[in-house]
Design a protein around this nucleic acid. Sequence first.
RNA 1: GGGGAGAUUCCAGAGCGGCCAAAUGGGGCAGACUGUAAAUCUGUUGGUGAUACCUUCGGAGGUUCGAAUCCUCCUCUCCCCA
Length: 430
Amino acid sequence: MKNFVEELRWRGMIHDVMPGTEEMLKEGMAAAYVGIDPTADSLHIGHLVGVMMLKHFQNAGHQPIALVGGATGMIGDPSGKSQERNLLDEYTLRQNQEGLKSQLQLFLDFHSDIPNKALLVNNYDWMKEFSFLDFIRDIGKHITVNYMMAKDSVKKRIGEESKTGMSFTEFSYQLVQGYDFLHLYKEYNCKLQMGGSDQWGNITTGTELIRRKLSGEAFALTCPLITKADGGKFGKTESGNVWLDPKRTSPYKFYQFWLNTSDEDAEKYIKIFTMLNQEEVTLLTHQHQAEPHLRILQKRLAEEVTTMVHGNKALEAAKDASAILFGKGTTDQLKNLDEATFLDIFEGVPQSEISSETLNQPLLNILSEQTGVFKSNGEARRMIKEGAVLVNKNKISEDYQFSKEDLIQNTFILVQKGKKNYFIIKVNSF
RNA sequence: GGGGAGAUUCCAGAGCGGCCAAAUGGGGCAGACUGUAAAUCUGUUGGUGAUACCUUCGGAGGUUCGAAUCCUCCUCUCCCCA
């Protein structure tokens, strides 16, 4: 059995850990859980840290439990939810749960007969029948308001500078989450909850509850919140979240996301998001520092994560596409691609279709109204003036007019908005 | 229940009768420089038939030649007292 805490420690994945956790885990197989909000039917990379913790946990010979927060997710956003809405939500919830599970299987072993196979549970299952009265009597009784108020998450919300206040629902959140822990402790002998550092307060409410109600001992471990060196929010791009679902974020975009991390972040991320061992990471980091322009870390990071999530084939496709788009790709090369390769490379790149007659319309018209490359004529005009718009890799000016000459394989036009944003116009010729 | 403060463009936050599509900062996007990095500098950041017009400053009315700015009512938020 590997030392789980030690493993996370060198990876920089420990923010805080409750004393005794390491010792407890050394005693033998244990169970730990991480909560996931089922707000969508796909994970996004913000979830990945928690998932990786579970993966390492299973790797170390322990049993990982992924808890889908169906109940907690419902109260997380308390504004304006009617009963009807909640019913609908249950249906969505189940679907989301299925989506999440299929993705979690990429990381965790749910099926084999090993004793530490992963589990997926949904707190909605044990919360839905729990009446309010029963809850405040059986659970609320064990935790004082004073204790709950002392939490940072609460203090911040009721303090002087707070501008929004805090509803009772939000206040009770930590207790509901605490109960989850108690429940898993009883049902699965789960003694550890993990999560982001912002979860520390909620987790310790759980351990406290277990101690007061059952005189049991439970533990907490949190990882630092993932940040970017420039202070930006991790996991967001201009088009929103980076999802694991290839329908939401194409493998190409996914690959590009990791490839684009800054040097500083790449050193951190490769430890967190890949399974590479310490020697490999150290070696790669040294190589990278010696020749930073080769971006060894970013490439390896992108390869590892993309393979893990989308598989080898998708990785190769993403790399091919990247080479053509960012390598020394020229207009000629572009035009020489056969249709299959072209479509393959640009899979996931936004597309829109127009008819061949439309091609004769003014440039701005085509770029905004007809295809939605730009939100408005004004935006299109501005960007063209800035030299940010390329057609088939050539810069264009405002008086440019599309013609048959622009069609790749008689069908496609490749429009670039800046260096990184591609767009395909498919011209139907009939 | 009483008293006070407030709701502005993606966010924060100025503006308090015309010069306001609305300062400033952040964020976003783009250009230059580069290594598809960071930092830096520059431009841009409601819409259009663009020296003008249209829609926008919590909602609905009103005053005025003219309102984000004044008045009335409403909705919501925060703070203090009970």
